[in-house]
Computed example of a mutant assay.
Amino acid sequence: MVAAAALEEGVAGTDSLFTCGGTKDNLIHCWNDAGHGSITFSRAFAESCNPAFARVGLSLGAQKIIGYAGKLGLDNQSVTGYPVTPDPRQDLSLIGEPYNLVNSSVGQGPVLVSPVQVTAMVNAVVSDGVYRVPRLVKEVRKSSGGAAEEFASDAGRQAIRPDTAAVLRDLLELATDEGAGKEASVPFYGSAGKTGSAQTGNSKQSVNAWFTGYAPRVNPRYIVTVLVEDGASGSESAAPVFREIMEQILRFD
């Protein structure tokens, strides 16, 4: 989401340079203890470089990040055809609270998201920037066979420009080919996606490990989001699960 905002607002391009000091970085620590040194925006995305994206977040500011989070559905908890009780803990305005902007820019901090919301956001990237409210139920049928109730799919709205979505797809491919998401690579069909590792506060080693992505790479048909609670990292715990699930889906496609 921060990458989408940066590209839309012209804060960063794929070749924009940032500096990562690793554990000695004066803004936020990176998982790479030695640091990435000078790193492009594209590589920072692929390698999940915290200092680079923290600096992107500071350049954008809290209000722009909150705005794009809303455009990409992170303020929507509803699912068409299925009742969802809103969780009051999900509050995007917390990004604007003191000291939260840097952490929120790298997927940490107080803001919560669900796997369904993340999946819908990735669907917007796949759909040339058009966001649609997720739908779980198409229709409820009577025992006699007729439709008792139907749930129309969302017509969608343009959340980000098509060219921004195209660049994001390139970045997701890079992350899976050469970056932190290599364990999610699906042979023959191709895949693309992004890792995430959100600290839980339970221990330094324990994180909510994420991977979300799509396949096949050309004309994508499926999106899978994996969340492993108390995992090691997105690349170690979630990416291999994504690959296994997607391989089985495509095997029977």
Rank of each mutant, 00 (worst) to 15 (best):
Y82K: 14
G107T: 05
V137L: 07
R135F: 12
L92Q: 05
S105H: 04
V122S: 11
V130H: 11
S114M: 08
V79C: 04
A124D: 01
S105V: 06
S104G: 12
Y131I: 00
V126F: 09
P83T: 03
S127I: 10
G96E: 08
G145A: 04
A124Q: 00
R89D: 03
S93A: 14
V113L: 04
P115M: 06
V137R: 06
V116Q: 06
N123T: 15
S127D: 15
P83Q: 04
Q90A: 13
V137S: 04
V79W: 08
R132V: 08
R141F: 08
K142E: 13
R89S: 12
V111H: 01
L136A: 13
P83M: 04
I95K: 09
V140S: 10
S143F: 14
V140F: 01
D87S: 11
D87M: 10
L136I: 06
M121Y: 10
V111N: 05
Q117T: 00
V122D: 13
K142P: 12
P134E: 08
G107W: 01
G81N: 07
L112D: 03
V137Q: 01
P134Y: 02
G129P: 14
V113C: 02
D128F: 10
K138P: 09
R132A: 07
Y99S: 14
V122K: 07
V84T: 09
P98M: 02
S78I: 09
V84C: 04
V140G: 06
V133Y: 06
V122A: 12
P134M: 06
D91H: 08
E139C: 12
N100V: 00
Q108F: 01
E139R: 15
Q108W: 02
V106Q: 00
K138F: 08
Q108S: 02
S144T: 15
Q117V: 01
I95T: 08
S114H: 07
P134R: 00
G129D: 09
S143W: 14
V125T: 07
V116M: 09
D87Q: 11
I95W: 02
N100D: 03
A120E: 12
R141L: 10
N100P: 06
K142V: 12
T85L: 13
V111Y: 02
V126R: 10
S105R: 00
V118H: 11
S144D: 15
T119P: 07
P98H: 05
G107L: 05
P110G: 08
K142D: 14
V118S: 09
Q108R: 02
T85E: 13
K138T: 15
G145T: 02
V79M: 09
A124F: 03
K142F: 13
V118A: 11
S114L: 08
G107P: 02
S143N: 14
V113Q: 02
P86I: 06
S104M: 09
E97P: 01
R135Y: 12
R89K: 15
